[in-house]
Amino acid sequence: MNHLPQAWGRPRDDVYGAYDASYLQSNGPNQHTQSPIVTGTSVVALKFKDGVVIAADNLASYGSLARFTDVKRLRTFADTSVVGFGGDVSDMQYLDRLLNSLDTEEAYSTSGHTLNAKNLHTYLAKVFYKRRSDFNPLWNQVLVAGLDGEGKPFLASADLLGTTFSSPSLATGFGANLAQPLLRKVAPDEEAASKLSQEQALEAVKESMKVLFYRDARSLDKYSIAVVTKDGIDLKEDEKLEKQSWAFADQIRGYGTQVN
């Protein structure tokens, strides 16, 4: 070992030759995150008569490696809102701490002011937009579920670009392709969503999670699911997909490990 900290823990230059740093950028503008590292896949959510159902599986992938299988990607805020995170997990942790400190600040005064889901979504969208404008994005797409200022069900998404979107049903990542059509069948518009019962909404979301597990190679059959209503949050973080049926699998060439 020599006195240069940057050389510590490296193979010795005199034996193995100098470290090849050519892949490291040595000039040009500063660069921040160019891609996410450890990622979570889809988040799925659906509005119903008195609230919102939201779900995400418990997997954090490192590339194609299923790296962590007990990751909670649904985070609660002030016992009134749930944020579901897709995308980079460390950025999710950062945002979770940010929301935690925001919640603590909100609780300083006892006078009954709380940020509702709509306020929270506005805030998160501002954070995302600021960071992308700094060329240092937080690599997530999030769904915010809860109630708005009028006490009506609220569901909206915000992403790493600062884009916001709202709809009676929403899904991020792979789910945007696979789950969204299924959910739209159940609730094509606000009016249809406002007639759904909690059971119907739960079933539709669970069904979506199952389909996603069948077709999304970065997904897991252990998941978290939350129901947000005016009475609070019912969050379950250790659910298992039920009634899986893989009968279809051997009919499909190239599916899973079977190549031909």
């Binding site: 005064s109 006078s111 002011h113 940020l115 306020n119 929270l120 506005t122 805030y123």
Partner: peptide
């Protein structure tokens, strides 16, 4: 109003 879409609580 800009960051939260909320009228600021008076006490604060």
């Amino acid at each position: 109003r800009l960051t939260y879409g909320r009228a600021i609580p008076l006490e604060r």
